Amino acid sequence: MACRSISSIILVLLLGVICTATVVYGGHQVWWLVGGDNRWSFGVDGWVKDKPIQAGNILVFSYDPEMHDVVEVDEAAYNTCTMPSNGGTRHTSGRDRIEVREGKSFFICSTPGHCTKGMKIAITA
């Protein structure tokens, strides 16, 4: 009889741990390959349309780091395809993973001419 009580207590504790883990880790993180099959490249500026990107999602920028980069910029720099005076936050790995923040985020390639060819995205989460 005592063995069944201990087994029941252990089962309840185990279920409690599982439920707690579900609350802490329950939200699944969505990863987005920016540009889809075309990756981070020219004309990617329309890729984000109709994507349900939310704060906490991960953007994955995949590209040749010898040719491109990803720079987080402000809206003015995004609209004019220029580097902001503070330089923005530059990523150069070729496989950058950036967590989406709440609000607006803007990304461009700083290689001359690339942003004006559509190598930029704007996210609102």
Rank of each mutant, 00 (worst) to 15 (best):
75 E>W: 12
113 G>S: 14
123 I>Q: 00
65 P>N: 01
101 R>P: 05
62 S>A: 11
53 I>Q: 12
86 N>Q: 05
71 V>A: 02
117 K>V: 13
19 C>T: 13
40 W>C: 12
60 V>R: 11
9 I>K: 13
20 T>K: 15
6 I>W: 11
105 S>N: 13
104 K>Y: 09
107 F>Y: 09
85 S>F: 05
18 I>Q: 08
16 G>I: 15
90 R>F: 10
109 C>I: 07
40 W>I: 00
43 G>V: 08
91 H>L: 04
59 L>Q: 07
53 I>M: 05
28 H>C: 13
78 Y>H: 00
42 F>W: 01
52 P>G: 02
74 D>I: 12
41 S>I: 04
41 S>Q: 00
66 E>W: 12
84 P>Q: 06
87 G>A: 03
96 D>Q: 04
109 C>D: 00
87 G>L: 12
58 I>M: 02
31 W>N: 08
72 E>I: 04
57 N>V: 09
91 H>K: 07
7 S>W: 07
29 Q>H: 05
54 Q>P: 01
124 T>C: 00
51 K>G: 05
29 Q>T: 01
63 Y>F: 07
82 T>H: 15
54 Q>N: 15
111 T>P: 14
14 L>H: 12
118 G>R: 03
89 T>I: 04
111 T>E: 10
36 G>L: 02
24 V>N: 14
13 L>C: 09
80 T>C: 04
34 V>S: 06
29 Q>E: 05
107 F>L: 07
66 E>M: 12
97 R>W: 15
125 A>F: 04
22 T>K: 12
26 G>F: 05
15 L>A: 07
86 N>F: 14
36 G>W: 02
10 I>R: 15
120 K>T: 01
123 I>C: 03
6 I>F: 07
65 P>H: 00
35 G>Q: 04
37 D>C: 09
79 N>S: 12
59 L>H: 08
63 Y>M: 12
17 V>T: 08
46 G>W: 06
116 T>D: 08
51 K>F: 05
68 H>Q: 09
62 S>M: 13
124 T>G: 15
23 V>K: 10
33 L>D: 08
60 V>G: 05
114 H>P: 03
109 C>W: 06
33 L>Y: 01
47 W>C: 05
16 G>E: 11
103 G>Q: 02
34 V>F: 07
11 L>G: 09
112 P>I: 06
100 V>A: 03
33 L>M: 13
87 G>Y: 11
108 I>W: 11
77 A>Q: 11
121 I>Q: 12
3 C>T: 02
109 C>F: 00
95 R>S: 11
